[in-house]
Design a protein around this nucleic acid. Structure first.
Lengths: 129, 129
DNA sequence: ATACGTGCAAAAAATTTGCAATACT
DNA sequence: AGTATTGCAAATTTTTTGCACGTAT
């Protein structure tokens, strides 16, 4: 049988995503994980992100043409992408109002949705005084 | 001064996106454009998509990890991605209700937004009888 | 006629894979 | 001990760039 082992690399990469303030890209995951595992290779990051995704422990988020990853099980939420500092934040409220029953005009059956807001994050907005 | 010329390549690529039923990826743009311009190179597609994007004549859409492009000026709309047939549809209504003034709880200044619904398109939903 | 634009091929960047050494169980 | 996993480097993509030739103005 296919045994999936627990390794230091997987633990660290998992924790990096769990501790993150929002979804992270491959390069950022590598950078943060290397704080604990200096020798970590990029190939392991790719392989681990794929594995964790298959296990549904994390999931990919397509944003600004890049694929970011975030830990699963954080409940329903959406993202805010800052046009100035490019950081991505997690929003815990949902601004969407869908028809009850999950049926959208035109006959589309809605099973899930994704919302991304773009603009200025609190810090960048403050700079405009 | 920087003169931007009108060329057969640019015209065809523009038209491909204007005629498309939804946003298209680079490979699909090349494929469709080559119907009119057999010798068209992929480099020209990349360069033209970048140019048209800078001119705001088209814009990128991050969807399922791929960057797709669609013609601008079609009014406010969103996308529906079918989980079964994977086609992407354009939705002309907006299910979002944002706070007036563009200020989102937490101090985020919202300038734009993107919504993607996932589920079954009318055709695929019908198959479930 | 003057350059901007194109296609091709080379270059650079991003992602995947093969393999011997390493580390879980 | 046995084998899944890792790091490195090589192999694949994917996207960008240099250049001589073609073409719009």
């Amino acid at each position: 049988m296919t045994a999936t082992r627990s390794t230091r690399q997987r633990d660290v990469i998992s924790r990096v995503l769990t501790d993150a303030e929002g979804p992270l890209g491959v390069a950022e995951v590598l950078r943060r994980a290397q704080a604990d595992l200096p020798g970590l290779g990029i190939a392991t990051v790719y392989r681990t992100l794929k594995l964790l995704t298959e296990q549904r422990r994390i999931h990919p988020v397509a944003l600004d043409g890049e694929t970011l990853y975030e830990a699963s099980g954080r409940g329903h939420h959406h993202h805010f992408s800052c046009n100035r500092c490019t950081r991505v934040f997690t929003l815990h409220s949902c601004p969407l109002s869908l028809p009850a029953g999950g049926m959208y005009p035109g006959g589309f059956v809605v099973e899930a949705h994704e919302v991304t807001l773009y603009g200025l994050c609190p810090a960048c907005a403050a700079q405009d005084s």
